[in-house]
């Protein structure tokens, strides 16, 4: 590891030593952060996988039902049937701070105050397949929203973990060795100076003694 380009002075040494202390402390903190992030991520990503598998399976089925409904009704009829939904989906999203990563938390509220059925059409012109398709979609929706939330959280955590890991590595393999190397260099240089001063003094003393004789 190359040392830094500094003057070998005592002041510089003190400065570098305090810098090294900070770097080591930062490194420890970063490492803890990375480990904790990783732990949370592992929990979440498992959940994410389960949710995604569930949503994908159920949604495929539900869309299959829609396809069936579409097969027995004309497109115009189908679209007309669902044109004016009886409910309105509103969601509220709060940002939650998870290990200094902002992650979304979705709260959804379905406006079912009006006491009407969730089927926005009369039953005369539509087929039963559409009913079951809509019932299925309705069932999956909370899972879909949760999936959206968990997936985004995982995504952001993954990004943050990568960043943190990079910092940990930069500190561990570059900053800290470099500082240590430079500190050693300065210490050795200072010692060397001290030794040469000492020898010079001894030499001078010797010469003085010789002259006095």
């Amino acid at each position: 590891m190359p040392q830094m380009n500094v003057n070998p002075t005592r002041m510089e040494l003190t400065r570098l030593k305090s810098q090294l202390a900070t770097a080591v402390r930062g490194h420890d903190l970063m490492k803890d952060k990375r480990d904790e992030l990783m732990r949370r991520f592992m929990d979440l990503i498992r959940k994410n996988k389960e949710l995604r598998e569930k949503v994908e399976a159920e949604l495929t089925e539900a869309l299959h039902s829609v396809l069936l409904a579409r097969a027995v009704m004309s497109r115009e009829m189908l679209e007309e049937a669902v044109m004016y939904p009886t409910r309105r989906m509103d969601i509220n999203i709060e940002m939650v701070n998870l290990m200094s990563v902002e992650v979304p938390s979705i709260k959804y509220k379905e406006d079912d105050s009006a006491d009407v059925s969730m089927y926005p059409y009369g039953f005369a012109n539509t087929s039963g397949e559409l009913d079951s398709a809509i019932a299925r979609l309705h069932e999956i929706l909370p899972d879909m929203l949760e999936l959206a939330q968990v997936e985004k959280t995982c995504q952001r955590l993954a990004d943050e973990i990568e960043r943190t890991r990079r910092r940990v590595n930069a500190l561990e393999y570059i900053m800290i060795p470099q500082l240590e190397e430079t500190i050693r260099y300065i210490t050795m240089k200072l010692d060397e100076n001290e030794r040469s001063t000492l020898t010079r003094l001894m030499k001078v003393k010797e010469m003085l003694q010789e002259r006095n004789l």
Binding site: L63, M83, P85, L141
Partner: peptide, 22 residues
């Protein structure tokens, strides 16, 4: 309040309309 959107080909997304999604 935020909204939820569904984007996709016509036959895949038409069902979501009845749930009050855009």
């Amino acid at each position: 309040m935020y909204k939820v959107g569904v984007i996709g080909d016509r036959d895949s997304v038409v069902g979501f309309r009845s749930l009050g999604l855009d």
